[in-house]
Design a protein around this nucleic acid. Sequence first.
DNA 1: CCAGAAGCTTGACACTTGTCAAGCGCGAAT
DNA 2: ATTCGCGCTTGACAAGTGTCAAGCTTCTGG
Lengths: 212, 212
Amino acid sequence: MARQATRVAQRVAVATEVLRDEKFNARRIELAEAALETLGELGFARTSLREIAQNSAFTHGVFHYYFSDKLDLICCCVRHYKAKCVTRYDEVVTSAQSRDELTEGFLAKLAATLQDEARMHRLWYDLRSQAMFEAAFRKDVLEIDKSLEAMIWRIASRYAELGGTRPASSPAALYALFDGLFQSALLKHLANDDRAIPELLDEVRRLLPTIC
Amino acid sequence: MARQATRVAQRVAVATEVLRDEKFNARRIELAEAALETLGELGFARTSLREIAQNSAFTHGVFHYYFSDKLDLICCCVRHYKAKCVTRYDEVVTSAQSRDELTEGFLAKLAATLQDEARMHRLWYDLRSQAMFEAAFRKDVLEIDKSLEAMIWRIASRYAELGGTRPASSPAALYALFDGLFQSALLKHLANDDRAIPELLDEVRRLLPTIC
DNA sequence: CCAGAAGCTTGACACTTGTCAAGCGCGAAT
DNA sequence: ATTCGCGCTTGACAAGTGTCAAGCTTCTGG
C-alpha cells in the first residue's frame, strides 16, 4: 500500500518534470523564433540580445534564463531553422508524376523561396560562414548541410527516376551546384536585381535534364 | 620667363601632389593588409578596429586618418583582396599544353589554396554573406564574384579548347559548381576533416571531363 | 634654420555589448 | 492562508565599441 503510494508519487513527479521540460523547451523555441526574426533582418554581426528582445514580446533577461549564453541561443536558432527548411520540396517530389510536373513544381517553390524567404536564407549563409570561424557552430552547420544535400539528392533521384535514368553526378556535386546558384541568385535578388529569379529558373531548367 | 616659372611651379606642385596621393594610397593598402590578417583570423563580426591595430604595427587612430570609417576600411580590404585572388590560376591556364597538364596544375593550386589560404577564403565567404545585409558591400562583392566567374570560365574554356570541345555549361553554372564545392570543402577542412582536400580533388577530377 | 603641414599617438566621449544578481508577481503545494 | 519556487523583469556592471579632437613628432618647402 505504502509502496504503491510512493510509486504513484514517483510517476506523478516524473510526469510533472516531463511537462516542465516540455514547457521549457517550447519557450526556448518561441524565443529562438523571435531571435530568428531579428537575425534575418540584421545578420549575425549586428544582432544583439537587446535588439532581439526589443523586436519581440520579451525582455532581454529572459534569454539568459533559457539559454546559457548567446552562442547557445543561436545554435538553438540554427537547429530550429533546419527542421523547417529541409522538407521544403518534399511534397513536390512525392506528388510529381512526370519530369515536367517535378520541374515546374520545383521551380515554382524555388522562386517562392527566393522571393518570400530571402531573409532566412541570407541568415543561413551568414551562419554557415560564421561556422568557419566559430567552432561551436560547426557541428550543427555541417549537419544541416548534409540534410540539404540529401534534400537535393531526393529531387535529382526522383527526376532521374521519372525519366528512367540515374543522376549523372554525385550528391555533393549536385548540392554544390544548386547551392552555388541559389546563393548567387539570392545576393543579386537582395541587390534589387529583377533578373535574379528568372535567370536562376532558366539556369536550373536548362541544367536539370543534363545532370539528372 | 615668369610664365615659364609658374608653369614649372605648377608642374612641381602637381607632381608632389601625385606623389603624396600615391604615398597615401600605399599606406591605405598597408593598413588594409594588416586588417585582413585580423579579419581572416576573427571574421567580420568579431573584428574591431582596436584589435586590428593591436595585431599590427599601427595604433587605432591611424585607421581614422586613412579611412572615413570602418566600412570604408573593409571595402578597401575587399577590393585589395580581389586583385590578389583573381589571377591565382592564370599562370597554369596559359602554360598548360594538354588537358592532363591543366588538370594537374589546377588541382595542385586548388589544394594549395585550401591548405594555405583558408583564412583569407573564409573571410571572403563571410564578407559575401555580409553583403546580403549591408548594401555598402554589395557593389564590390558582386564585382569580385563576376571576376571569379570569369576566372573559372578561363580555366574551363582552356580545358575545352585543349580537347577540341566547348564547355557544356554556362559560366554562371560552372562558377556556382566550383564555388559550392570549394566552400563546402573549406568548411570541412576548417573542421579538421582530413578528407576534405582529397575529396574535393577527386570530385573536380571527375567533373572536369564531363562539364568542360 | 624655421614655420607649418603631414603623419601619427593618445586619451576621452558616448554608447552598446553580454552577463548576472536582486527582486517582483503569481500559481501551486502544503 | 502561507510558503515556496518558477518565470520573468529590472537595473547595474565591466568590458568593449566607433569616433574624434587635441597634441606630439617628423618631415619639408621656403
